[in-house]
């Protein structure tokens, strides 16, 4: 494997990192590749891809809240310049270091005046929804450049507990299209448990929620709270479905893979297992070790 293939392999490992373990994976990869120079340059695009896909959170410079790093938050760098990220809530953009996860160089951003009232209303409803269902959640609500009827709601909740060898991440994203009267969404859940083992839950669910006629851009605050009520209902349904699936996998699949005890409800009598076999062989005329 040449150097560039090794870096590509390293990038694929990084993209598979469980929640909150990208640094551990990076340390392992550095040790395995042992070529920091080509690695440093080569894995940066992978780190960026990972951060955007995983809704990594940034401490917004100059404010108390956090915002989501994602494709929707990205402001393309002009003329080869580096990408910046938008926090619509504080209306600033910032530089983001994809390795250290630090935000810097805050600059004010003028929001689209047509889209802003509805976006702000969605944001406020999203934050109160976040507060009522997520323990440590972060949400960002983005307007779509050049449109005043399309918005993206993103939610992420992380729990990292390396001391007890587990971590988890809930991501959801909803593209609200007021013109098409539909919300297209997806929910992604990842859990990693790794005490003397490696067990992972990975779920993906796409959702389509039709919008009732009462939801219009002209009455932002009522529409926004109705929209979030719909999302709340769908996420609740999904979580219940997940719970039912757990039940089914535990009660049916797990049990039919392996019984807790044999049908006799007793552990095996090993002397008899051997005895039976030997007895059967001896009663036959074939040699002791003949294939039964």
């Amino acid at each position: 494997m040449d150097s560039s293939e090794r870096v590509q392999a390293a990038a694929r490992f990084l993209l598979q990192s469980p929640p909150g373990e990208i640094n551990d994976v990076l340390n392992d990869v550095r040790n395995i590749i042992s070529d920091d120079d080509s690695l440093q340059e080569g894995v940066l695009p992978a780190l960026q891809e990972y951060n955007l896909a995983q809704f990594i959170i940034a401490d917004v410079p100059g404010s108390e809240h956090q915002s989501i790093i994602s494709e929707a938050a990205k402001i393309e760098g002009q003329e080869g310049g580096e990408d910046r990220f938008l926090d619509p809530r504080s209306k600033i953009s910032f530089r983001f270091d994809h390795l250290s996860l630090e935000a810097s160089d805050a600059q004010p951003v003028e929001p689209d005046s047509e889209a802003e009232p509805f976006r702000a209303a969605l944001e406020s409803s999203t934050l109160s929804y976040l507060n009522s269902h997520f323990n440590e959640g972060v949400a960002s609500v983005f307007a779509t450049p050049g449109s005043s009827s399309k918005f993206t709601i993103q939610i992420v909740a992380n729990k990292y507990n390396p001391t007890n060898f587990w971590s988890g991440r809930w991501r959801s994203e909803y593209v609200v299209d007021l013109a098409q009267k539909v919300i297209s969404g997806r929910i992604l859940v990842n859990v990693h448990y790794y005490e003397q083992g490696n067990v992972q839950l990975e779920t993906k669910q796409n959702l389509t929620i039709p919008l009732p006629p009462a939801i219009t851009p002209s009455n932002p605050s009522t529409s926004a709270s109705k929209l979030l009520a719909l999302i709340e209902e769908e996420e609740g349904k999904y979580q219940t479905h997940l719970s039912d699936s757990y039940q089914e996998m535990s009660d049916k699949t797990f049990k039919s893979l392996r019984r807790a005890l044999p049908l006799t409800r007793q552990k095996i009598e090993w002397d008899r297992v051997l005895g039976y076999k030997l007895g059967a062989e001896l009663s036959g005329s074939k040699g002791v070790f003949a294939e039964s």
Binding site: H133, G137, K159, G168, W170, V191, G197, L201, F254
Partner: peptide, 19 residues
């Protein structure tokens, strides 16, 4: 671990009941 721990983490992330 499969049906207890990982499920608990999901419920730690999001609560069905309103917090």
């Amino acid at each position: 671990v499969y049906f207890g721990k990982t499920r608990d983490v999901v419920y730690d992330l999001r609560s069905i009941e309103s917090l």
